[in-house]
Nucleic acid binder design. Structure first.
Length: 916
RNA sequence: GCCGGGAUGGCGAAAUUGGUAGACGCGACGGACUCAAAAUCCGUUGGGCGCAAGCCCGUGGGGGUUCGAGUCCCCCUCCCGGUACCA
């Protein structure tokens, strides 16, 4: 037993740190700065172990940087606007402001229990007028620079949420938050012109971000190079199409328009009118989700109209089909069935012409009737007029000779132009909801829209409104009744801003959360910006992280940083590149999953051969009766579709083929093998599954230091993994061991130089190892190294053979290296050992290379690549000596059997390989 | 389908980037302490063979490069994440 009382220690240090302002970070131009940022939480009400997993390692690294001599800013705040608060108002009659404030208060307490080095003076809450004044102000600046505009577009409307959503917030036709389907509607809304920055957003110059995030953003932006070609209808209307393969224009045999395309009406012939109207009506009624759930069988109707292909004057039919989307490209395509798989399927389905225009490399020419799929490979252009015979490769855009030749021809003949198209749409920013930042705009009676003057900002969100599931603002006269710049009655904008806008600039507000003259104090910004490290989840790859990049670029171009840049220069800091990107380094943590459960009772029917069973049916039910079943027992392990079941008759391997019927008591409805796999393995934490790990309970039971240490130790941080309630005991034991060592009386009975040197070597190696690991976010190996040092110190204690000086050095170094990870217990022990100043103000220990150096190493001797012997040799051994030692080995001699080795490869002092 | 990341003991994981596979921890097993249990302490722990010295096998599967491959190259299987009639 120790007198380690984590509850008392953690509480008292948290209070003392707060009272002393230990973590206050202030501008100090004489010191290098480090701005460490972790994604701000939404005030959901309760901290999840996932928050701890994201934040406490980030805190450890920020603390490490502080000990390395940086002036570190590590702020915290709340992303406080959003729908859940509004729902609470509807369902429980609690005002969103109160709901939010209560939750923030509770979460602040939980955050404090983590013992992180947050500078609470810099806390920012996005729903405070202090904050959203500047969200509104930024909206106005964007409006003034034509980066915010009102426009009509086909948008995602969520009937569930009663609001429109940005493309980024719709996944698989369902809204990102609730998973409910969205529908497409043509509506007039507010947008941010993020597409103006598409090309710049594709560049990631100077930033150290995970490859995966950059790829996701690149794919989301979806740049494609090609040409825009103009076809002409029989009525003389122009139909513009975007294509990445203009070289196949001579193979275009029909056109397809999106059902909502504006030219559909004029194209439609009288006899096709009814069919077209029916199809359009059906398409409009279906949600994105329904469209995707239906088979991939192509549907569509002929309009009865024709258009002329500008390259050859051919008259081709115009169809409508829902595989062409109004929101992408021009909403119309030329169809080249021979060389595009979707067009091919459509043509086959409706019996349309297929004309090959590429002769595959080294093969016979394609014959339309014999084709079973489109051909998209390289070859030579055929039946293509002016570009006949031109080579075509797999390259995209002008890099492909046939495409380059076609673009030149199109431009010379006025039939089309080179064009680049993006998948990225402008960011739809308005929401028909209450609990968000107001949009500071006024609709005049004459239809003109004008901004609220700066001196009238902020537009305050009124409190005494009624909640009923839709935005109350549009029905609340005291809010919407306004006066325009000419004193005329007008209507205030009642939509509010997407909460992603609030989180697109919050790290600037942290710098000076109460600064009254701008979104941030330029002096603070000049010193702290840009953010050096940013940590958080990768789920924000194409939302928050893309918006944040857009915002800083737009702010830069609008001159918002002009004063900041001037101040940077005055202080001798080069502003170049400081406002091109928000976060210089980004690292994503993984996810903590629910605890791996065992104890599932499995009942299997099937054919048994020995201890193997081919299942025909599998039932998972904790209350399963031990009756008829080929095998009844407890699941021990599963890999793929193989289950290991411990039954009365011993361990049985059960194979579950796709054809087996599966019944899982916990999951209603018909189940399948996939569900079985997921159910029997780990899963996400959720209240309904009853596997949520509550950090508050863990902190009470084990202490924050133990929880932090365990979270950093147990997983590769970027990866995460299933919670293990037994694993945390190892972290607790480690902390207790540190306590014991640091409070022990140590008087050696037989100090000797060898043991002393050995311990000191370990200490200095550990300093280097832990520092390097924390630098690279490798928290698990950093903790492992500290545990190994603990083991070495314990060995010294048992042997009583290291000098008191080496002992003290080892123990205190252990405390210093552990301080960023377990801040409370190390602080306590540091003081108990007679230090007055906080351990968190100490410098990171220096590793003495001389002390850390090993004098002898174990050299491996291989014979034909197999390890046959190990010999202790001086670390500085020469190649000749190494070979000599290796050949002198008895084991090697035995293999040589008197003969000579064919060759010997030596990499002293690591390895010598003797090849027979 | 496409893009990205993976697959290493019973489990979480290490491995200086081509050089002792399994550090560190969990669990398990054996022992000490205890009337007993927990806690704690000591030890063992990839699999197989062997009394032992030791030998063989082993990083999802199959090939290859190399004196030497978890690591590099080619092919395949599976898992996780993202994304999808994107013209």
């Amino acid at each position: 037993m120790t007198d380690y009382d984590h509850q008392a220690i953690e509480k008292s240090w948290q209070e003392r740190w707060e009272a002393e302002g230990l973590y206050h970070a202030d501008v100090d131009w004489s010191r290098p700065k480090h701005y460490a940022l972790t994604m701000l939480p939404y005030p959901s009400g309760d901290f999840h172990i996932g928050h701890w997993y994201a934040m406490s390692p980030s805190d450890a690294r920020a603390r490490y940087m502080r000990m390395k001599g940086y002036n570190v800013l590590f702020p915290m705040g709340f992303d406080a606007f959003g729908l859940p608060a509004e729902n609470a108002a509807v369902q429980r009659n609690i005002h969103p402001a109160k709901w939010t404030a209560d939750r923030i208060e509770r979460m602040r307490g939980q955050l404090r229990s983590m013992g992180a080095m947050f500078d609470w003076r810099r806390e920012a809450v996005s729903s405070d007028p202090d904050y959203y004044t500047w969200t509104e102000w930024l909206f106005k600046r964007l409006y003034e620079h034509d980066l915010a505009y009102r426009g009509e577009a086909l948008v995602n409307w969520s009937p569930t949420l009663q609001t429109v959503l940005a493309n980024e917030q719709v996944i698989d036709g369902k809204d990102e938050r609730t998973g409910q389907p969205v529908v497409q509607r043509l509506m007039e809304q507010w947008f941010f012109a993020i597409t103006n920055y598409a090309d710049e957003l594709l560049r990631y110059d100077g930033i150290d971000w995970p490859e995966a995030i950059r790829t996701m953003q690149t794919n989301w932006i979806g740049r494609s190079e090609g040409a825009e070609v103009t076809f002409t209808t029989e009525h003389g209307d122009e139909i513009r199409v975007f294509t990445t393969r203009p070289d196949t224009l001579w193979g275009a045999t029909f056109m397809v328009l999106a059902p909502e395309h504006p030219l559909v009406d004029s194209l439609t012939s009288a006899d096709q009118r009814e069919a077209v109207d029916t199809y359009r009506e059906q398409a409009g009624r279906r949600t994105e989700l329904e469209r995707m759930e239906e088979s991939r069988e192509k549907t569509g109707v002929f309009t009865g109209g024709y258009a002329v292909n500008p390259v050859n004057g051919e008259r081709i039919p115009v169809w409508i089909a829902d595989y062409v989307l109004l929101s992408y490209g021009t909403g119309a395509i030329m169809a080249v069935p021979a060389h595009d798989q979707r067009d091919f399927e459509f043509a086959r389905h409706f019996g349309l012409d297929i004309v090959p225009v590429i002769r595959p490399e080294g093969e016979e020419p394609l014959v339309a009737d014999e084709m079973t799929e489109s051909y998209v490979g390289p070859g030579a252009m055929v039946s293509s007029g002016p570009i006949d015979g031109t080579e075509t490769s797999d390259a995209k855009g002008r890099a492909n000779p046939s495409i380059a030749a076609t673009i030149d021809w199109l431009e010379a003949n006025g039939a089309g132009v080179e064009s680049i198209n993006y998948r990225l749409r402008d960011w739809l920013i308005s929401r028909q909801r209450y609990w968000g930042s107001p949009i500071p705009m006024i609709h005049r009676q004459d239809g003109v829209i004008e901004p609220v003057p700066d001196e009238d900002l902020p537009v305050i969100l009124p409190e005494d409104v009624e909640f009923h599931g839709r935005s109350p603002l549009a029905e609340y006269e005291p809010f919407y009744a306004a006066t325009d710049s000419e004193g005329q009655p007008a209507r205030r904008e009642t939509d509010t801003l997407d909460t992603f806008m609030c989180s697109s600039w919050y790290w600037f507000r942290y710098l000076s959360p109460h600064y009254p003259d701008g979104p941030f104090d330029a002096e603070e910004a000049a010193y702290w910006l840009p953010v050096d490290t940013y940590t958080g989840g990768s789920e924000h790859a194409v939302m928050h992280l893309l918006y944040a990049r857009f915002f800083v670029k737009a702010m830069r171009d609008m001159g918002v940083f002009a004063d900041t840049e001037r101040l940077m220069r005055e202080h001798g800091k080069n502003p170049a590149g400081a406002f091109d990107e928000p976060f210089m380094m980004l690292r994503n943590q993984g996810q903590i999953l629910g605890e791996e459960r065992d104890g599932d009772v499995v009942v299997v029917q099937g054919e048994r051969t020995g201890n193997k069973v081919m299942a025909t049916s599998v039932t998972v039910d904790p209350d399963a009766r031990p009756h008829a079943g080929t095998v009844v027992g407890e699941l021990v392990r599963r890999t793929e579709n193989l289950l290991q079941v411990a039954s009365d008759g011993g361990l049985v391997t059960v194979e579950v083929p796709d054809t087996a019927t599966v019944d899982i008591a916990a999951i209603p409805g018909t189940n399948d093998v996939t569900q079985l796999r997921h159910h029997l393995e780990v899963q996400r934490m959720s209240k309904s599954k009853g596997n949520v790990v509550n950090p508050d309970d863990l902190v009470e039971q084990y202490g924050a230091d133990t929880v932090r240490t365990y979270l950093m130790f147990a997983f590769e941080w970027q990866k995460g993994g299933p919670w293990d309630s037994r694993g945390i005991l190892g972290a607790r034991r480690f902390i207790e061991d540190v306590w014991k060592l640091a409070t022990a009386e140590y008087t050696p009975s037989r100090p000797n130089p060898d043991a002393t040197a050995k311990l000191r070597r370990s200490v200095h190696q550990t300093i280097a190892k832990v520092g390097a690991d924390l630098e690279e976010f490798k928290f698990n190996t950093a903790v492992a190294a500290l545990m190994a040092l603990r083991n070495d110190i314990q060995e010294g204690r048992r042997g009583e053979d290291v000098t008191p000086e080496a002992w003290d050095e080892a123990v205190e170094t252990l405390l210093l290296l552990l301080a960023p990870i377990a801040p409370h217990v190390t602080e306590e022990l540091w003081h108990r050992r007679g230090h007055d100043e906080s351990i968190h103000l100490q410098a990171w220990p220096q590793s003495d290379a001389e002390v850390a150096r090993v004098e002898t190493v174990t050299m491996v001797i291989q014979v034909d690549g197999k390890v046959r012997d190990r010999v202790e040799v001086p670390a500085a051994i020469s190649e000749e000596e190494a070979i000599e030692v290796a050949l002198a080995s008895e084991r090697v001699q035995g293999y040589l059997d008197g003969g000579e080795p064919r060759t010997v490869v030596a990499r002293p002092p690591k390895i010598v390989n003797v090849v027979l």
